[in-house]
Amino acid sequence: MKKLLGLVLGLSVGLSGCGKQEAPATDATQSTDNAEVQTVTMASTGSDADIWRYIAGLPETKEAGIKLEVKNFTDYVSMNTAVANKEIDVNAFQSYAYMVAFNDNNKDKIAPLSTTYLEPMGI
């Protein structure tokens, strides 16, 4: 479980899209128990946002020095636009092909940092 959580937390920081950002926002960095805590603002949608909020509240997230703030969006284009405009740090929702199409159709570009889990789809 800890390995899975570590993987998910690591990927949450690098999901998709660090547009023109040099690094995630660190203005909210604070000290807790002599450990540096980095705030990462993440966009997600629907039940995914609930999953990320759950992860944000886990003790392992705090132990990793991450304060994860999840903002719920209602559409995918606005999530990418928010990353490109530096309103949020990362988002977690899209395939690589979707990101390439977004970049082809928009002047602002975003870049992948890492991959995330794939959700099963039922028919």
Rank of each mutant, 00 (worst) to 15 (best):
M1K: 02
K2M: 07
K2Y: 05
L5R: 03
G6D: 10
V8N: 09
L9M: 07
L9G: 00
L11P: 00
V13Y: 03
G14P: 02
E22W: 03
E22I: 09
A23V: 06
A23R: 13
A25H: 08
S31E: 12
S31D: 07
T32A: 12
T32D: 15
E36P: 01
V37A: 04
T39V: 03
T39L: 04
V40E: 03
T41R: 12
M42P: 04
M42T: 05
T45E: 00
D48R: 08
I55P: 07
A56R: 01
G57F: 05
G57R: 02
G57V: 09
E60K: 06
E60G: 09
K62V: 02
K67I: 07
L68S: 08
E69K: 01
F73K: 02
T74H: 08
T74M: 05
Y76R: 06
S78A: 13
S78D: 10
A82K: 01
V83D: 03
A84Y: 02
V90Y: 14
F93A: 15
F93K: 00
Y96D: 13
M99W: 01
D104E: 14
D108W: 00
A111Y: 11
P112Q: 11
S114E: 14
T115Q: 14
T115H: 10
T115S: 14
T115Y: 09
T115A: 07
L118I: 10
L118P: 01
L118D: 11
G122C: 04
